Simulated scan of single mutants.
Amino acid sequence: MPHSTSDQAKLADEITRQLGHLTSTLVQLPAHQATQLIARVLDPMDGILSGFAHLVATGSRFAKNEAERGALPAEVWLALGRAANELNAIGVDLEEHADTLQRFSARPAATAAKPLVATPLVIRRRR
């Protein structure tokens, strides 16, 4: 049974509202709970980021088909394709830190093995 455009718009609005709520919650959580939430959001298989990247990639394929029919300008397809590629690259960059986030979030909050030491935040990487 096809879904109405109105239902899909309501779903998108609800997801947007929920993301706003999640963001508001994140800033109020203790460090280990915030890390758990971030780890879940960035989970490479089931996280919000990978779900959103998949949604944009699907939109890009749709836009390609529509551009080939002449219903959409090719620039729309190209922009969605670039966005999908960028989101994928971001996911790949963050995936290398997934284990660290999982380990940190699994630690009990009160049982830190050693005191925290501040770390300089300037790191240079070659791409």
Score class of each variant (00 low, 15 high):
Glu66Ser: 07
Gly91Arg: 12
Val41Lys: 01
Ile90Ser: 10
Asp7Lys: 10
Leu22Asn: 01
Asp46Phe: 01
Asp46Lys: 08
Gly81Met: 04
Leu94Gly: 13
Glu75Val: 12
Ala84Phe: 11
His21Val: 15
Ser24Gly: 15
Asn88Tyr: 12
Glu95Thr: 03
Arg17Gly: 00
Ala84Asn: 02
Glu86Asn: 10
Ala74Asn: 11
Ala71Asp: 15
Lys64Ala: 12
Thr100Pro: 03
Pro73Ala: 13
Leu49Asn: 02
Arg69Phe: 00
Arg126Ser: 14
Ala118Met: 01
Leu87His: 04
Leu101Arg: 03
Ile123Trp: 13
Pro30Tyr: 05
Glu96Trp: 00
Leu87Asn: 00
Leu72Asp: 06
Asn65Phe: 08
Leu94Glu: 04
Ala113Pro: 12
Ala34Met: 05
Ala12His: 04
Ala74Ile: 13
Ala74Thr: 09
Ala53Pro: 09
His3Leu: 14
Glu86Gln: 09
Ile48Cys: 12
Ala63Cys: 05
Val122Met: 03
Arg82Pro: 02
Ala71Val: 02
Pro120Tyr: 03
Asp93Tyr: 14
Arg17Leu: 04
Gly59Arg: 05
Asp46His: 07
Ile15Pro: 08
Leu94Ser: 09
His54Phe: 12
Pro44Asp: 00
Ile123Asn: 12
Asn88Cys: 06
Leu55Ser: 07
Leu55Tyr: 09
Glu66Ala: 09
Gln36Lys: 14
Leu101His: 04
Gly51Phe: 08
Phe62Met: 13
Leu11Thr: 04
Met1Val: 07
Ala118Asp: 11
Gly47Met: 07
Ile123Asp: 14
Phe104Arg: 15
Ala53Gln: 11
Asn85Gln: 11
Arg126Leu: 14
His97Gly: 13
Ala79Thr: 11
Ala31Gly: 01
Ser4Gln: 09
Asn65Ser: 13
Asn65Thr: 09
Asp99Thr: 05
Pro44Val: 01
Ala89Tyr: 03
Glu68His: 11
Leu42Gly: 05
Ala84Thr: 11
Val76Lys: 09
Leu121Asp: 08
Gly47Asn: 06
Leu121His: 03
Leu121Gln: 10
Ala31Val: 03
Asp99Phe: 03
Gly20Pro: 06
Leu29Cys: 09
Thr58Arg: 08
Leu80Glu: 01
Thr35His: 02
Val56Ser: 00
Ala112Leu: 13
Ala113Thr: 11
Leu19Asp: 00
Val117Asn: 13
Lys114Leu: 14
Glu96Ser: 06
Arg17Pro: 03
Ala53Trp: 07
Phe52Tyr: 08
Thr35Ala: 07
Gly81Asn: 15
Glu95Cys: 06
Gln102Ile: 02
Leu121Pro: 02
Ala63His: 01
Ala83Arg: 00
Leu37Arg: 05
Ser6Asp: 10
Asp7Met: 11
Ala79Lys: 08
Ile123Cys: 06
Leu116His: 07
Leu49Gln: 10
Ala34Asp: 06
Pro108Thr: 14
Leu87Gln: 00
Ala98Tyr: 02
Ser24Asn: 13
Pro30Lys: 07
Thr100Gln: 15
